[in-house]
Amino acid sequence: MFKGSLVNLRLQTLKDMDALAELMNSDMYFESLTHDMPRFTYKEQLAKRFKDKMDKHKDNELHLVIETLEGKIIGAVGLEFIFWKNGLAFMYLLTGDPSFTSGGYLEEAIRLFLAFAFHEHNIRKLKTQVLANDEVSLKALMANGFKTEVVHRAEVLKHGRYLDLLELAILRDEYVQ
């Protein structure tokens, strides 16, 4: 477990899938976190997908939950794919509980995750995608040193108009600075 003053990060387990499915059915998720088809997530389906993934014991992914010091799950953070040869990892960030979008919870979760990724997991570059209307994630990522590298203009359809999709990244050298 990685311990902070507001949140802790720990490995996801099968028991966490109910709470994560709830976050993936939240208004915030449909509004700013998914850029694919807006589909409801069934906890049984999420649990099955998680179990299938864990059974493969792959070393190129990593899945953590973000929880408060009291143990309430408020999000997830992880690596959906690690390209070991290039030192490159694709990070995801799941939020969805509006009570924890301010107050520094997400910022601390990302700070803990970066320390692990760069200092323990030997990742050289972390990148992630964020919708332009997801101000909560953007603010937390930028506060931790992420920079916008690519703007996919008018990429994702929401409420009849196309939003930009941003690719943000941070290199280990930038994190150390």
């Binding site: 040869k85 050289r124 916008t148 690519v150 203009r153 290199l171």
Partner: peptide
């Protein structure tokens, strides 16, 4: 050009950028 993914490819002993391009 939509942007530059910095230092994403390790080849020939060093890291290279990967350019993101698009057309509508």
């Amino acid at each position: 050009l939509d942007g530059i993914n910095r230092e994403e490819l390790f080849r020939g002993g060093r890291y290279h950028d990967n350019l993101a391009m698009s057309i509508t």
